[in-house]
Design a protein around this nucleic acid. Structure first.
Lengths: 344, 344
DNA sequence: GGACTCAATGTAACCGGTTACATGAAACCG
DNA sequence: CGGTTTCATGTAACCGGTTACATTGAGTCC
């Protein structure tokens, strides 16, 4: 491996000083046109490319934006990431990604990442920071933005979906259709990462039902792991009881798909025998015609990145909060309770 | 923003030289135990964290692995990425991601990324490099690995799925079921990014049919955009013809889902009236029970990252090629042609 | 007791950029 | 024509680490 060409090589070859070469490189100061051309030519000849490490060190910036996300593989995360990427594509910043799938990794990253030397900005996606790290994050001199990471005690800028409103939306839709026996399948409230979306969606849902004078029935509330198969099993149990609900709200589309599978297992026809509504609007939902509450995933990433850029360039003093509203996407898995009888 | 603490601050505070502080930092040379403890203590007190930029500059390495991928948002890409991440998680390398969704971006990245100063290794995922950049990439002194990027003229290490074998597998499955009129819905052969997977899958498929003495029927071959809706429309046309096929092989699950929707539109029952087989085994396929050819997506990322690490640490001289075999995943959208009559 | 070894640590150069300040020449001014 | 401004460029310090080599002092050996 031959030694790489440096700006000094360029300067020597072009018969100028490193300062001039650097100026040409950055298109900054006024450099004589002839000189500029000569230097550029030499750079081309030598296939010179500046060392970003050196530049970073000298400039005191890294020109990178770091994203910490959980479960990169879930479609939600990928979509949010894409929003961030889209927003950063035209900037000079590079995107560094840390994927967290364990508590240890999370803790490690929250300790080591928010450092001036490492990155110019940090976007935390779907990963509420543990309480003991919040103060550290707030006092960090690295601009930080949270996306889909609810953290009650922090004042840092963040982008959130209104999960309570979304839960209410789901409940309203089912109520409108005439349902009164409505089940819920969601995540366990307590979970290692401190995700609150399932909990919040349930809250909005429950609240709306209460207002309509409907009391919660514990047999109609089931919580477990986030996966489709867990939801499948929970739903089988719930739907096998004599007093089964006529509709189910699942805290995520993934879980709703499990509920659909359970209905099929039990010979229940959707939506005639059972209405199902999910949450997220992942790609698969469109495939199967799942009625759901859409989150603005791509938009959340974009908004987060934009907040961050504002912080970086303007040192924006007012921490902002952006709330993205969920919307009902009506498809084929929900129907009026009094709908015509199922065709034989 | 206060000035950050440097290794010199640490050294002064601890009453040692920067060299010793650096040695402690790297756990290298033998440092007296008492001294080491003192230095570590000071580092803790000062909340010192080394500047990666400075370290990189000094070491001549960036400690980053760069991934260039196309269409991050597609589930395939995300899954491959996760394989890469899993393989890198325990290394000291950080993951920098570039997402390409346009030809311009692709060209820009291929020109600027493979540079010693920028990264210690490059993984190119699902993005065949344009012919004119191949030589540049081969002569680059940055280790490069291709994942799912077929490039005939290169000898660089790569990980590929055997699309031809996969296409053959699909054909064999349908032949085994007794089908003789088999349609194909795939991507246009010519596409701006030079993707070849659809073409290769078709080749394996066609070859197998030929061996079985089946001649291609142009009405049963349809190609268009990669999307579900494009496939939907193509399938509607194909299936509306008087001599419609009894089975369809779609070059991707996304397209297969479009075919399924088309069948539903036309009142064709799957699998009784029409068998459908896809390719990829994305998450949604499991949901809808789509028979498909599974690619080892996660594994491809992992293998790619491992090849790269081998190159980096051992300067491995032999460019390798890893081929991952596809597998048939049999679900509910394919059935024997002579299967019992459909229940009324 | 002097020469030698060795462990622990310090000094200073170096990585490859950026940039404050200095320099020199040309242009402009009264 | 001397003084001042302006423009183009050079010199050298600096960013914050790493490390080759030098130094120091204690221990060992004959």
């Amino acid at each position: 491996m031959k030694k790489q060409t440096t700006i000094r090589d360029v300067a020597r070859q072009a018969g100028v000083s490193v300062a001039t070469a650097s100026r040409v490189l950055n298109g900054r100061d006024v450099v004589n046109d002839a000189t500029r051309r000569r230097v550029l030519e030499v750079m081309e000849d030598l296939r010179y490319t500046p060392s970003s490490a050196a530049r970073n060190l000298s400039l005191g910036r890294t020109l990178t934006i770091t994203v910490v996300t959980s479960f990169l593989t879930r479609p939600q995360a990928a979509e949010r990431l894409r929003g961030i990427d889209a927003s950063l594509a035209d900037s000079q910043f590079d995107l560094v990604i840390y994927n967290v799938e364990s508590i240890e990794k999370r803790n490690q990253y929250f300790r080591t990442l928010p450092l001036r030397q490492r990155t110019d900005g940090l976007i935390v996606v779907s990963l509420p920071p543990p309480e003991e790290d919040v103060a550290r994050l707030e006092h960090s001199d690295v601009p930080i933005v949270f996306v889909d990471a609810r953290q009650n005690t922090t004042t840092l800028p963040r982008v959130l979906g209104d999960d309570v409103a979304g839960g209410a939306l789901a409940a309203e839709h089912l109520l409108d259709l005439g349902h009164r026996q409505i089940g819920f399948v969601g995540d366990a409230f307590e979970n290692p990462f401190g995700f609150t979306s399932s909990k919040d969606r349930f809250a909005g849902f429950q609240q709306t039902l209460s207002r309509a004078g409907i009391k919660p029935i514990s047999d109609h509330i089931a919580m477990g792991g986030h996966g489709r198969y867990e939801a499948h099993e929970l739903a089988v149990v719930m739907l096998s009881r004599p007093s089964r609900p006529t509709a189910i709200f699942a805290a995520s589309d993934t879980q709703a798909l499990g509920v659909l599978a359970a209905a099929q297992d039990l010979g229940l026809h959707v939506p005639d025998d059972l209405s199902v509504i999910g949450y997220d609007d992942i790609e698969a939902s469109d495939f199967v015609g799942l009625t759901t509450i859409r989150q603005q995933l791509f938009e959340s990433g974009r908004a987060g990145a934009q907040l961050l850029m504002a912080e970086i360039t303007e040192r924006a003093p007012t921490p902002q909060m952006v709330v993205l509203e969920p919307h009902l996407v009506r498809r084929r898995t929900t129907a009026s309770l009094e709908g015509g009888p199922r065709e034989p």
